[in-house]
């Protein structure tokens, strides 16, 4: 049996009613005509309701999926505010590192100046001595200055070395902040994907986004105060005692 065409379906559904309407019209039977017309309207309404129900169900499903997509809820309620705190922490770390570097430079400049000035003062007497133009008293004074200069410079250069070493260590902020920024970039990328999925939600149905959070083997990145909770160590001493507890 061949499938019914659309016009055949319409003929089946409405043929009888239209015929009775036509007969009623011919015979002038108003009541029968109106009754048949009502039947036509009801049939059309029924189709409309079926279509409306389908649309409502679709919308309902989309809304449910939207509410149930916990990853999206997670992103909006927890991870985005966390990301803000993480970026705040980056600001704080860069600020501290910049100030610490400048503090160390400001401490070092006067030391270098003092060394240069003392050397320049000594050089005057030294040149007189080399030219054999120095008085005995001045020579004795020069020796005293020389002793003091060597002593002070020994300490000063050690301070300079320490300050430079501190400046070097302070640059470690770039690693820490870089790791935090990378984490936030990953989150933004995930948010972009999830929002993209949301756009297609009603038409395609939601495809659950995989949580792309950091895996344990890959590492979690630096701990950010106020954001990262959980059993983290508080410093190197804590690490050392934990490891010695493990026999290391």
């Amino acid at each position: 049996m061949s499938p019914m065409s659309d016009i055949d379906k319409l003929r089946n559904q409405y043929g009888g009613i239209v015929l009775s309407m036509s007969v009623a019209l011919e015979s002038g039977d108003e009541a029968v005509f109106c009754d048949a017309l009502d039947k036509v309207v009801r049939l059309r309404e029924k189709n409309l309701f079926v279509e409306l129900r389908r649309l409502t169900d679709g919308l309902q499903g989309a809304l449910e999926r939207f509410t149930l997509d916990s990853r999206l809820v997670d992103l909006a309620e927890k991870e985005m505010p966390d990301a803000r705190h993480r970026l705040d922490h980056v600001l704080k770390l860069t600020d501290e590192a910049a100030h610490k570097t400048m503090d160390l430079v400001e401490q070092s400049v006067p030391i270098a100046n003092r060394t240069a000035k003392s050397a320049a003062d000594l050089l005057v007497s030294w040149k007189q001595f080399r030219a054999r133009e120095i008085a005995v008293e001045d020579f004795k004074k020069m020796l005293g200055h020389m002793d003091a200069f060597l002593e002070v410079t020994k300490g000063d250069t050690e301070s300079l070395r320490q300050n430079l070493s501190e400046v070097l260590m302070t640059q470690g902020y770039q690693d820490i902040t870089g790791q935090i920024i990378r984490g936030v970039m990953k989150l933004v990328a995930e948010l972009e994907t999830t929002l993209g999925e949301l756009v297609h939600l009603a038409s395609d149905g939601a495809s659950k986004s995989e949580k792309t959070g950091p895996q344990r083997a890959r590492g979690y990145g630096p701990a950010v105060p106020g954001v990262d909770h959980g059993p983290a160590v508080s410093g190197q001493q804590d690490v050392d005692s934990l490891l010695s507890g493990l026999g290391l």
Partner: peptide, 26 residues
């Protein structure tokens, strides 16, 4: 910079000889 206890334990179990957390000192 990884400072979770479970991670330090995991590294120790994997045979690490020392564990220093960033930021660190010379």
């Amino acid at each position: 910079a990884e400072s979770k206890r479970e991670q330090i334990v995991e590294a120790a179990q994997a045979g690490v000889n020392g564990y220093v957390i960033k930021p660190f000192t010379a």
